[in-house]
Amino acid sequence: MLEGINRKYDISGIIASLVVLAFSGLLIYLLYTQIPYGQDKMLVSKDYIKMGVNSTGATNLVTSVVLSFRGLDTLGEVTVLFASAMAVGLFLLPGAGMWQREENFVLRVASRFLPYLIILIGIYIVSQGHVSPGGGFQGGVVISSGLLLKLILKREKESGFGGLVHALESLMGAGFVALALVGLVKYGSFLYSFGPKGVPGTLLSAGVLPVLYAFIGVKVASEFVAILERFTSSGEEDERA
């Protein structure tokens, strides 16, 4: 099982192992002495917890931190995802069409309802991200897997799908930034969560946070569908497994 590593026992491998061992030992020692496990070390989070529900209206504190208190990091992440989708397009050319599949009974039966079920579950996860664990990122990835299933099961070659996906992704990204700028212009701080707070714990609460998560969900879904479509379509020199 160990033949995957370079088996020549050269000096660089030994040095690398010793360096990693020393680093791990140092990390363990520092962790056990400086950062005690399981003790209360919250400094900033105390304020976030105390004013989380009042300030944003979301009962999911992680959502209120991701979208409101640390919303700038989420904006950075949206940018990184967009850049990675573009970079994949740099390395892989758009395919001519899906891989041709053999006729399969299980796939034929499942393709009638399974993609829509998966997309529905994804929409559910996105839409209640502010009251329960979940949100735009998780639900967006689920939606993208349902869309990919639908894409794989289509028989004819795709023509206008790529354009719609890219347009949707850019539109959602722009929408997210637009909502953040509304917060800046109208209320004085970027990504301020405005909108009616509602009753915390219900679906229609937390102001603009569900809308932000919906934008993020659609953006993430369309990005990953675009990436996966590059990976599953046959470009030049395609191989049949």
């Binding site: 999911n60 992680v62 959502t63 996860i125 664990p133 979940g134 949100g135 990122f137 998780q138 990835v141 689920v142």
Partner: peptide
């Protein structure tokens, strides 16, 4: 939240 993200 993190567990759901890691799983998916």
């Amino acid at each position: 939240d993190v567990a759901m993200a890691e799983a998916v």
